[in-house]
Amino acid sequence: MVYEIAGLRVRIENKYGFTTKFCREYLSDDQESPVDIIATASEEEFAAERSLSDEFSDGYIENICLYRSICMQMPAFGRMLVHCSVLEYDGNAYAFLGRSGTGKSTHTKLWLKYLSPTRVINGDKPILEYKDGGFIAYGTPWMGKERWGTRAQAPLKGLCFLEQAKVNSIRKLSIAEASTRLFTQILIPSEEKNAIATLELTDKIVTQVPAYLLQCDISEEAAKKSFEAMTGFNFDEKKNITN
């Protein structure tokens, strides 16, 4: 079946029903026109993924392989996967990044709690597209364990790397610092054309999207720091205005 993912036409060649159901909101009305990307899960990739885990169904394992196949082909189209949680507030997208367990989900919940209307575009695996000198963040069917996300897109206005700390503080990262940190949250395809495109896109992200380091706990003050730095709004004025 053909799906529309991150503005591209993607034909997904799945054997198991899991992915058909998983991607149904992204199904294209046009099943006939040419596609940009064909996603397949080879037996080799399936076996490699299976060897990492016994507890998941074949359909789930295939599903992981299919998204990897899609993401490895995206860079040639000016798009790439970045492991992060992307939220939309006031029409713009803001990304939270960090190693697993540093509090992306917790920080996402803080924005949802205090800053309505915030919505999650994708809580784990959004695709970013370079377009007209900036980046657009897209929701995709792949949204991590919590399955937070929606079929939406918004211009990306900030990256915020998270680290746990006892005292809340935020500072702007230099381009080199942002680049080093961003490299830990991306996949570099092995195919040369897509590998080069990934490096070029990564360079564009860090040179064109402001990046911050938020050292934070799980309090309201943490959300205030990231919100004010990235949006330029006053947190206390914007807090819960519709609640």
Binding site: I175, S179, F183, L199, T202, D203
Partner: peptide
């Protein structure tokens, strides 16, 4: 492949 990313050679 060698590219300059964020001002660094990678």
């Amino acid at each position: 492949v060698l590219r300059v990313v964020g001002g660094e050679n990678v």
